[in-house]
Each structure stands twice: as structure tokens, then as C-alpha cells.
């Protein structure tokens, strides 16, 4: 691809020093974003990575130096492995459910005509305006032992159930929070779709379902892919939802990091767990990206 990019067009105007201005302008223009990114992301990340190699002693606290001990203990400790596995299981399930709900939702949305489409788009996006913490509290009130859900279960004679602090609840709440991040990219790729393409499939005798599966779905795959990556990444590092709805019983990686930093005060250990989460997340997402997108790159460009 890059080989076919045409040579930079010669400056048409009477600019005296086009070759000097050309390289500096992009640098200059991107500088604020680069600085911001460096200051807010790269430097803390680098400090965290450094921190994770520091030695730690419960009596004296952080002592500097260099050790791989924290990484080793995380990677060999069943407790941590279980939490990592649980985190990825919950995130994967939340992602799958978001795809199952979000993709049809976006499709139906794209089929609506205008007053309704705007209204429903707003309804889908509105939760983003409410803090995750508030929404998590909402779920915990709803599902708590004295909440309306249990009251209803009692009224129907099913009896009280423990709903809070279960994986199911965490997944439901994650799906609730993450759904807009699935709907928006899918909706965007649906907007780019030529409606005649689906009509073409119908004109060849395809049923609606076949048309969607064979013609529409493959074309919005990039949208589903980016939605999945966002949802998975955000779920795997989610803190407020598992913190408030998983409680002490159901820990996820982000809540463990929090515990290490603030309860055990073992900062290097927390940093090591955080670094491992980042690495694991990257591996999962890159693999997924490769698998799905590699398959469609040539076709959809």
C-alpha cells in the first residue's frame, strides 16, 4: 500500500521554503497531544513498571532495589491466577453478551426513521452521563436482600436469593455499563453501509435473516471488532463495578491492585499485578484483533 502513495505534491503556491515547512508543521501540530499523552500515560506507566521491580518488606515498606519476586509470586500463586482467570472470564462473557445485545440494537436503531432514531440513540447514550459508581449503587440497591427484585421473588413465592456478590451480577452490571461502547462503533459502521447492498441480497431471493448474516454482518465486522476490544479492555480493568457489586468475595484484578496499594500498602506488588494485567490484556486484544481482522483485511480494506 505505502509504495503506491504518490509523491508529496509540489507546492503550487509561491511558498519559498516548502521543504522546510513540510516536516515541522505536523510535529508542531501534534506536540500538544504527544506531550499530554507522555505526561498522563507514558510517565505513570513507566513509574509503575519501575515500582513493580522494587523490593518490599512489611516492616520497613518499600526499599528500592531490584527484584522479580512480585512477578514470580503473582504468577505462581493460585489466588492470583484464579483472579486473573475470573477477570478474563467475566470480561469475555460481558463482551459476548454486549455483542449479542448491542449489534441487533444498533441494527434496529439504524433502521428507525428519524424522530425515533434520535430519541433511542439518546436513550442508549444517556447512561454515559451518569457516573459508573452511581449506576453500580443503583444495581446494588435493586439486587440487595431488601431490594425490589428480591421483594418480587418473595411475592411470587420463590424465596429470597443472594444476587449481590455473584459473577452473574457483575456481568449484568458490566454489560449495562459497556453496552454503549458496543452500540456506537457498530452503529457507525452501519451508517457507512450502502442500504442497496441488503436490497441486492433480497433481490436474489435471500431471506432477511440470510441477508443479515451473509451480507450485513461481514461488513460491520470491523465495528463489532472495535466494540469488542473496547468492551473487553474496559471490563478487564473495571474497578467500580466489581468493587461495589463483587464485594470482598468476588475480586477482579483491578480490585486486587487497589487492595495491594491501599490495604496491604504493598505498592510494588500492586504495580506488578497492574503491569501483568496490562500485558495480559494486550496479548488477548492483539490476538483477537489479528484473528478477526486479518481474516477480513483484504476484502474490506
Amino acid at each position: 500500500m505505502s509504495a503506491t502513495v504518490p509523491e508529496a505534491a509540489p507546492a503550487a503556491s509561491g511558498d519559498e521554503t516548502p521543504e522546510r515547512r513540510f516536516p515541522t508543521a505536523p510535529l508542531f501540530l501534534s506536540a500538544p497531544a504527544v506531550l499530554l499523552f507522555a505526561a498522563l500515560v507514558l510517565i505513570p506507566l513507566f513509574l509503575t513498571a519501575l515500582l513493580s521491580f522494587n523490593q518490599f518488606d512489611y516492616a520497613t515498606g518499600r526499599t528500592g532495589g531490584f527484584t522479580l519476586e512480585h512477578y514470580l509470586s503473582v504468577l505462581t500463586d493460585e489466588y492470583y491466577l484464579e483472579i486473573f482467570l475470573r477477570t478474563f472470564r467475566i470480561s469475555a462473557l460481558a463482551t459476548v453478551i454486549c455483542v449479542v445485545i448491542g449489534v441487533p440494537e444498533a441494527y434496529i436503531l439504524s433502521r428507525m426513521s428519524n424522530p425515533w432514531r434520535s430519541i433511542f440513540l439518546l436513550v442508549i447514550l444517556a447512561p454515559l452521563l451518569v457516573s459508573v459508581v452511581v449506576r453500580a449503587f443503583g444495581w446494588s440497591m435493586l439486587l440487595g436482600p431488601e431490594g425490589p427484585v428480591n421483594a418480587a421473588l418473595m411475592a411470587f413465592g420463590i424465596g429470597r436469593m443472594r444476587l449481590l456478590y455473584t459473577e452473574g451480577t457483575v456481568i449484568v452490571a458490566l454489560v449495562h455499563v459497556m453496552l454503549p461502547f458496543m452500540v456506537i462503533p457498530v452503529w457507525t459502521s452501519l451508517q457507512k453501509l450502502d442500504p442497496a447492498v441488503e436490497q441486492a441480497a433480497l433481490s436474489f431471493g435471500a431471506s432477511r435473516g440470510t441477508a443479515i448474516v451473509r451480507v450485513v454482518a461481514p461488513q460491520i465486522l470491523p465495528g463489532i471488532l472495535s466494540g469488542s476490544l473496547i468492551v473487553f479492555g474496559l471490563s478487564a480493568s473495571a474497578f467500580a463495578i466489581p468493587g461495589l457489586l463483587g464485594g470482598r468475595r468476588l475480586k477482579m484484578v483491578a480490585t486486587v491492585v487497589y487492595d495491594q496499594y491501599l490495604s496491604d500498602l504493598n505498592w510494588p506488588m500492586g504495580a506488578a499485578v497492574a503491569a501483568l494485567l496490562l500485558i495480559a490484556n494486550l496479548i488477548v486484544m492483539l490476538t483477537y484483533h489479528r484473528l478477526v481482522e486479518g481474516h477480513y483485511r483484504r476484502r474490506l480494506g
Binding site: D194, A196, V197, Q199, A200, A201, R214, V215, P218, Q219, Y296, R299, L300
Partner: peptide, 8 residues
């Protein structure tokens, strides 16, 4: 008019 070929 847009041909509506299946791009994939």
C-alpha cells in the same frame, strides 16, 4: 445505481 456489490 451504486452497484451494491457485496464488498466482502
Amino acid at each position: 445505481q451504486s452497484y451494491a456489490l457485496f464488498p466482502h
